[in-house]
Amino acid sequence: MQHKTKSVFLLAVTLIAGGCSRETVQKMYDVDFKPTNRFAKNLASLPGQFQKDTKALDALIQSFTGKVEKRWGSKNVKIAGKTNYVKYIDDYSSRADVNFDQGKVVIETVSSTEPLSHLKKAIVTTLLTPDDPKHVDLFSAKKVAINGKPFLYRQILDQDNKPIEWSWRANRFADYLIQHQLKVKQVNFRKSYYVEIPMVENQVEIRSYKYASLIRKASRQYGIPEDLIYAIIKTESSFNPYAVSWANAYGLMQVVPKTAGKDVFSKIKKRSGQPSPAYLYNPENNIDTGTAYFYLLKNNYLNTIKNPTSLQYSMISAYNGGAGGVLNTFSKDRQYAFKKINNLQPNQLYWALTNKHPNKESRRYLQKVKNYKDQFNAGKL
C-alpha cells in the first residue's frame, strides 16, 4: 500500500512537471500497460466497428473465386478490396485492376478468340465505368451499365492529356494503348494480353474533392471534425466508393452492416435492422453512417474521457478495434480504465494505444489516421 501511494505521488509530480516520458509511463503506470484479467467479469462488451462478420461474404467470394480460377488459375486470382477495384467481364476472361495505392490500372484478357477485341472492350468499359457503385457487381462477370460521369474521370488522361468522359475518346484511347503499349505474358498456360495505365499524380485529391460537400454536411450534423472524416476515408478506402473488405465492410468509410451500421440504425436513425451493402455503397449514406458511428463513440461509448485530444485518439482506435479494445489496453475493469486514461496526457495516451493496444492492426491504424489528419491540415491530402 505504501509503495502504491508513493508511485501515485511520483506520477502526479511528473505529470505536473509536464515532461513525462514514455519510459516513465511504461514503468510506473501499472505494469507496462499490459492487459490484466483481474476484472474481466466487470467489462461488458463494447461494440466495435470491425468485429468480423464474414459468413455471407465468404460464401460469395468462394463461389466467385472458383469461377475466376477456371480462367486465370489459382495463383492469378484478383479480388476487389479496400483500396483496389477489380472487375471481371466477358465470362471472367477479361478484367480490370485499379490499384489506388500504386496509382496504376492494369487491364487484361485471357480470351483465346480475338483477344485484342476483348481487351479493347475491357479498356473502354473500365474507362467509362460509372461513378455510382450500385451499377456494378464486383463479384460477378455481369456487364457494366455505362451511364453518367465515369468513376475514373480526370484520374486517367489519354494520349493527348485529356480526361476521358465520352465513348469516342475512350475507344480512341483504347486503340492507342493496344497499338503502342500492348504487353503479353503467360497466365495459367494461356496468353494474357494487357496494358498498364498510370493514374495522375493527384488522383487521391481528385476523388476526395467529389465528397467534400457530403463530408462537410456530416461533420456539421454530428459534430465530428472534417479532417478526421477525411483521414478515416483515406485510411479505409483511399476514397474508393467501391471498397469492400475482409470484415464485410463497404464503401468509403468501410462500414460493417452488422455492427456499426446496425448500431447507427438503432440508436440514431431509430430504424430496425441494418443497412444493406447497396445502402452503404451510396457515398452519402456511407459518410453519414460512418460519421454517425463516430458520434456514438464520442457521446456514448467513450464520453467519460475528458481531454478532447485523448477522446479523439480513443475514437480513432475504437473505430478499428472497438471501444473495448481501447479500454483493455489499460485494464479489464472499465471504470478503472477510464480513470487511467484521464490521468494521462494526450501524447502519453497516444503512445500507449500505438504500442500497447492488444491488437497490432489497431496500433498501426491510429498512426495512419493521425498522419493523414496532419497531411490534410497541412494541405497535402
Rank of each mutant, 00 (worst) to 15 (best):
S7V: 12
S7N: 10
T14K: 07
T24G: 08
M28Q: 09
Y29H: 12
N37S: 13
F39S: 01
L43Y: 09
A44F: 07
D53R: 09
D53C: 00
T54F: 11
K55M: 11
L60P: 02
L60A: 10
I61E: 15
I61P: 06
F64T: 12
T65V: 14
G66P: 09
W72S: 12
A80M: 01
A80T: 15
K87V: 12
D97H: 11
V98C: 15
N99A: 11
V105C: 09
E108P: 05
T109L: 07
H118R: 14
T126P: 13
T129N: 06
F139Q: 08
N147I: 12
P150G: 09
L152R: 08
L157R: 01
D158Q: 07
I164W: 03
E165P: 07
W166H: 10
S167I: 09
R169M: 08
A174Y: 11
L182G: 13
V184A: 10
F189P: 04
P198F: 10
Q203P: 01
K210H: 11
R216G: 15
G223A: 00
L228T: 04
I232V: 14
K234E: 15
S238A: 14
F239G: 06
S245T: 14
A247F: 12
G251H: 04
T259V: 02
G261T: 11
G261P: 11
F265C: 05
A292R: 03
L296T: 00
N299G: 00
N300M: 06
N303P: 02
Q312Y: 03
I316Y: 00
I316D: 00
A323R: 00
G324A: 10
G324W: 06
G324K: 03
T329S: 13
F330V: 05
S331N: 09
S331Y: 02
R334N: 02
Q335K: 01
A337Y: 05
A337K: 00
N342T: 07
Q345P: 04
Y350L: 05
D374Y: 04
K380T: 02
L381H: 00
